[in-house]
Design a protein around this nucleic acid. Structure first.
Lengths: 344, 344
DNA sequence: TTGAAAGCGCTAACAC
DNA sequence: GTGTTAGCGCTTTCAA
């Protein structure tokens, strides 16, 4: 139990034979310190292995060198990748990252956001699970906290925001299927409350209508069993759909599993494609066509915005919120083909 | 900019018409407060929406209601799942979670661990990337910090530790292949420095030897290209191996990809199995046989230990370190079969 | 059982 | 350019 107490600013001052404030100024890069003095202090700091005590700074009203990250589900590959990148960049800039899974619960999200704010984080990065109309988190902004929403805008959004071209991506995917000659294309997803899904539905619907086809959207399929039953039902229909477009990863996996279980051949008997790429998409049989978005890029841009905003808050410049729209990419693989005879 | 300053203990005291200390005692559940007094204070607290200022507590030498989590790579599905669970449980107990990816860099890991300690986290949960002989992190323990290692023990370990039956799992997997009639079974992984891989190699080797077969281990295959070349070389050998056992997820995916690219049929022309289960293992063709471990369970047990230890540190009881060994499960699917003619 | 005083390590405001 | 003073909100010590 060698209670090696950390050296304080006072000890540094004594060793460098200067006043407390001089040390403080050196630490905070205040300009008005003579270079020679600065040198002395820096040497003392190095010698003692001095490090700032954040608690003391906080008590004086400063913000912590921490940023908060709230995502719906940290065990989701997409968000995990975002978190990884966020944390990495944060570290590069001297911040640590407080991470929370909101479990897709708006109340929890709000409560944890407040908690982070009360911990004086410098900024908040958030993939919201609130629905339209829930603007509770926004008020944190007025306390001078930098906030960036990503993947989905914060309702009533006047925060910086980074999202991808969900609508365009879904349109392109739908067009891709249509160009293969399909006309009965259904799309599946859970929960149109979620901004991303909602947007993708819009894209899908728009493209279907533009091509004179009738859109058909299935929602609320949360478990594998539900998806399987739905697929089964689908296959039994007269004039059954010949293509399935899944609006999110989870559902895509369920569809694939269900189809495999029923020994339906992809793409001969059913074309399938999904939104959200995944590592094994090109490894599975057949290689799965998806709309890919880059979690790394989303996180990178979000952090850049946040860091800027943190600077800005410091210098008092509350510029108007930035809106960044990132491209997606249709990864054409082999799960789409012209509708086969079996399906006609 | 409604600078709604948080109420302080002083204001609560004034409102409740008691001294500062009484409020402090109520907050900290100190026994010697008359129930009636306590009541008054509690009402005042509720009325003002008072919350403790952690910075001030820290300054007085208390620990933060935070725990630190260090993993090699947060974007890895296994660790992401661990992080999710850790964070969840931490939250349930009133802690926030500081997360760091060490990028498999021992120096970074150490540095971030120290940083967390200087932030006065209550406990540290860590999947180390240090190799045998690097005991730098251990000294943090002597400052009274609760530490639990999981997935891998901390070198020179006298910390609590939660790991899985890597050795037994590898043995069982190897036996499974042998029972299918294979005799030329190679195993692949990256880096035998990593504890888990090392253990699995031991298990594989032990079982091979026990069955009178010659073990063959390929290591250091980090990129897809390297794996592909290795697989290609393997297939060209006279008396080529008939089964590949991958010791980690990443390599397994590469092997699968390489085999698919070369149009080698699994399991007819090559049996394959891997350590570490993944969501799509049962969806891909053919369903992939793996040794599964539960990240949720690993994280759950680790957090339980950490929470206990935090309590213990508080009450001064430094019990001897717990070592927990969690079972793994061989998920028999269809990627292993008796060696075919093509391979003989 | 309760309260008053001291000070944790730092920085903002003001002197020099 | 540099030092001195006064707290930030809390808990620890000691006195009542």
């Amino acid at each position: 139990m060698s209670e090696a107490r950390n050296p304080t600013i006072r000890e540094v001052a004594k060793l460098a034979r200067v006043g407390l404030m001089t040390v403080s100024r050196v630490i905070n890069n205040h300009p008005s310190v003579r270079p020679s003095t600065r040198k002395k202090v820096e040497i003392a700091i190095a010698q003692l292995g001095y490090r700032q005590n954040e608690a003391a700074r906080l008590l004086k009203g400063q913000r912590a060198k921490m940023i908060g990250l709230i995502v719906p589900d940290l065990s989701d590959a997409f968000f995990a990748s975002c978190a990884h990148t966020v944390q990495h960049i944060a570290r590069m800039h001297g911040y640590m990252t407080l991470v929370v899974s909101s479990e897709r619960d708006a109340d929890l999200e709000f409560q944890q956001g407040e908690l982070m704010a009360s911990r004086k984080v410098s900024g908040l990065l958030i993939v919201t699970s609130t629905s339209r109309g829930d603007e509770r988190l926004k008020h944190l902004q007025s306390t001078g906290l930098a906030i960036v929403a990503f993947d989905r805008p914060l309702p009533g959004a006047d925060t910086d925001c980074v999202v991808v071209e969900n609508r365009l991506g879904a349109e392109e995917a739908t067009r891709h299927v249509i160009e293969h000659g399909h006309s009965r294309i259904v799309c599946v997803g859970y929960d149109e409350e979620t901004y991303t899904i909602y947007e993708r539905i819009q894209g899908y619907t728009h493209q279907m209508n533009a091509s004179g086809l009738k859109p058909e959207v299935a929602l609320g399929l949360l478990t594998f069993e539900e998806v399987r039953d739905w697929v089964k039902h689908l296959l039994g229909r007269t004039n059954r759909p010949t293509a399935i477009f899944s609006l999110n990863h989870r559902t895509a996996v369920f569809v694939l599993r269900a189809l495999a279980e029923m020994q339906i051949k992809i793409p001969e008997e059913m074309s399938v494609l999904g939104f959200d790429d995944f590592e094994l998409a090109s490894v599975i049989t057949p290689p799965f066509t998806t709309v890919a978005q880059s979690p790394v890029e989303v996180a990178r841009r979000s952090m850049a915005l946040l860091l800027e905003r943190i600077q800005g808050v410091k210098t008092g410049a509350a510029s108007s919120p930035a809106k960044i729209l990132l491209p997606v990419k249709l990864m054409v693989r082999s799960s789409c083909a012209p509708p086969g005879k079996a399906a006609s």
